Computed example of a mutant assay.
Amino acid sequence: MPGVLIAEDDEDIALILTRLLKRAGYTVQHAPDGQRAFELAVAGRPDVVLTDLGMPRMDGLELTRAIREHPELRDTPIVMLSGHLHPGDNGPVRTGVCVVLLKPCPNDKLREVVNDLAELGAHGHSGADSGCPARWPVSA
């Protein structure tokens, strides 16, 4: 089973995301902050990382940078799910996020994006031939 690491500080949202992705057939790990998410990513090598933007100890952009700088994680697909971004804010994509979704995001759209990235697998995140979809934002 493909594995998804969820970095989300809101326990209620994390529980909903965990249930949704487990029902879709994923093995799911949850971290309540970016630092713990990075530690779990290094230890477990998830197939996809799903991160919030605003979190304690390391926010979603810092987590993305840390993953992109790690030699064994740099090609991991990353989805940012946030309610704190505004359309046109290219910070997440410039940092290396593959897809940005705005909260609230329909469950079927979230499943579709995670499935697409899990199928795509590890891929580069810079240059025209990177393979990264780099979509922002994905509409519902």
Rank of each mutant, 00 (worst) to 15 (best):
L102A: 15
G83W: 11
D12V: 14
I6C: 07
M58Y: 10
Q29R: 15
Q29T: 14
A66C: 04
G121S: 01
V93I: 15
L40I: 11
R74F: 02
S126R: 12
R111T: 08
T27S: 11
G60W: 09
C98Q: 11
I6N: 08
T95V: 06
A14K: 13
H84E: 15
R65H: 15
P32K: 02
L20I: 03
C132H: 03
T76N: 01
P137W: 10
L117Y: 00
V93Q: 10
E69W: 07
A140K: 11
P32N: 08
H84K: 12
L61H: 14
V114M: 02
E112A: 07
G34F: 12
L61D: 05
L53Y: 09
L21G: 07
Q29W: 13
A31N: 05
N107D: 10
V4F: 05
R57N: 12
V48I: 07
R57P: 00
A140M: 03
I6E: 03
E72G: 08
R135I: 09
T95N: 10
R68C: 08
P104C: 02
G88D: 05
R36M: 15
V79T: 12
R36I: 14
N90E: 13
V97N: 03
M1F: 05
L61I: 15
P106F: 10
I16E: 10
P133C: 07
T64P: 03
D108G: 06
G83P: 01
L81C: 11
L63T: 01
E119V: 02
V49T: 08
D75N: 02
Q35P: 01
H86Y: 14
L50R: 09
L85K: 02
G127Y: 14
P46W: 04
L102C: 07
D33L: 03
G60I: 08
D59M: 12
E39K: 14
L15Q: 10
A122K: 03
G83E: 01
L101E: 11
V138Y: 09
N90F: 10
M80P: 09
T64F: 06
T95D: 03
C132L: 12
H125L: 06
R45P: 01
L15V: 06
R111P: 01
E11L: 10
I67H: 04
A24P: 01
R57T: 03
V113Y: 00
D116A: 04
D52H: 05
C98T: 11
N107M: 05
